[in-house]
């Protein structure tokens, strides 16, 4: 039993064709992903004057920190591409697997850093809280920008696309956090990072999914 009485198909066809307006074809998903990544990179450059570049240089000399940063960067790039690909009907769902390997690198390198510093007492709560606030605060505008761009397409699985967008935004925020992160990853620190990232992905998956579901 249908919820509404179906219009005769011809009436619907006439209504759609009658109100037809020319549309500008969307650029390819890869190009749109590049545009968003460039915007996020621009935000990173804008924050650079406030970063301690000397400390950053020292931290990047440590392999696990370097690989964690690289993993986050690659996760941001690949999750962005995957989000834009899944927003277009007919594109393979295998694109969703693309960010898995970089995300594994990101998580495992961060975990290694955590093990290395396991004997060091946890960071002071204000610092960890600052990282958490940074991650959430930066992820929010990045997520909004990404969802706004994705809305122009037609994601057939809006929650999946929005979750990928959340992963991209959280990873990009983690990359932007690197120049401002004053210490190695500790268990408390990593747990807070993990919570922040999962929160961003979860909120995106739920709220973004609704935002990406337009009528019809």
């Amino acid at each position: 039993m249908s919820e509404r009485a179906p219009l005769p198909h011809d009436e619907l066809v006439e209504a759609l064709a009658g109100g037809l307006r020319p549309v500008r074809r969307l650029p390819s998903p890869a190009l749109r992903a590049l545009i968003w990544c460039a915007a996020a990179l621009g935000a990173g450059f804008a924050l650079m004057p406030f970063a301690d570049l000397e400390a950053l240089h020292l931290r990047m000399a440590v392999p696990d920190l370097r690989y964690a940063a690289l993993g986050a960067l690659l996760t941001a790039l690949t999750a962005t591409v995957a989000a834009f690909q899944t927003s277009v009907p007919g594109r393979s769902l295998r694109w969703t697997l693309l960010p898995l390997a970089p995300a594994a690198l990101w998580v495992s390198a961060s975990g290694l850093g955590c093990l290395r510093t396991a004997t060091v007492p946890g960071v002071a709560p204000p610092e960890a809280g600052g990282c958490f606030a940074f991650l959430i605060g930066v992820s929010l505008p990045l997520s909004l920008a990404l969802v706004w761009m994705l809305r122009r397409a037609c994601p057939l699985r809006p929650n999946l696309t929005a979750a990928l967008a959340g992963l991209a935004a959280a990873a990009a925020a983690a990359v932007l956090l690197v120049p401002f992160h004053p210490h190695d990853a500790t268990a408390a620190d990593l747990a807070l990072h993990g919570v922040a990232v999962l929160l961003v992905i979860g909120v995106n998956g739920l709220a973004g999914g609704r935002l990406l579901t337009r009528g019809g």
């Binding site: 919820e3 219009l7 759609l16 549309v23 074809r25 969307l26 009907p89 037609c154 337009r214 019809g216």
Partner: peptide
């Protein structure tokens, strides 16, 4: 019939995403 009409509406909304 319901599915057909849903698809027509989605085609209309997604037509900018089609790459010829």
């Amino acid at each position: 019939d319901d599915v057909v009409q849903d698809v027509l509406l989605t085609i209309h909304r997604a037509r900018a995403t089609y790459d010829p």
